[in-house]
């Protein structure tokens, strides 16, 4: 094989039906967005899995590092006042 450049990787997001958000379902290789959309249709929607497809070059995604998980997400752990159960409402007020 000649030293071929690797064909870029894309992430595929599919909306299964209207009313639901697009959801990540996998990835594929394609040279441009048109090819990526057609390949996504063939690879990920052979049985009516989708009504809409998004594709995005994988290199364009910025992700949090799992090793930073604590500093990223722990600050929300001690904020119990963000939850409805933190507040005392007498029973006779009824459902709130």
């Amino acid at each position: 094989m000649v030293d071929e450049e690797e064909i870029p990787l894309w992430e595929v997001f599919i909306r299964p039906r209207n009313g639901l958000a697009h959801r990540h379902c996998g990835s594929l290789h394609a040279t441009d967005s048109k090819m990526a959309l057609q390949a996504a249709r063939d690879v990920y929607t052979r049985r009516g899995e989708g009504l809409s497809v998004w594709v995005i070059p994988s290199v364009q995604i910025s992700a949090s590092d799992p090793q930073d998980r604590e500093e990223m997400f722990d600050p929300s752990d001690d904020k119990v006042y963000r939850h409805p159960n933190f507040y005392n409402i007498p029973d006779d007020v009824g459902h709130m």
Binding site: L9, E11, S58, V59, I61, S62, A63, P66, Q67
Partner: peptide
């Protein structure tokens, strides 16, 4: 799948 940039960061 996901950001390839990070792969190997943890290795």
């Amino acid at each position: 799948m996901y950001s390839q940039g990070l792969i190997g960061a943890g290795s």
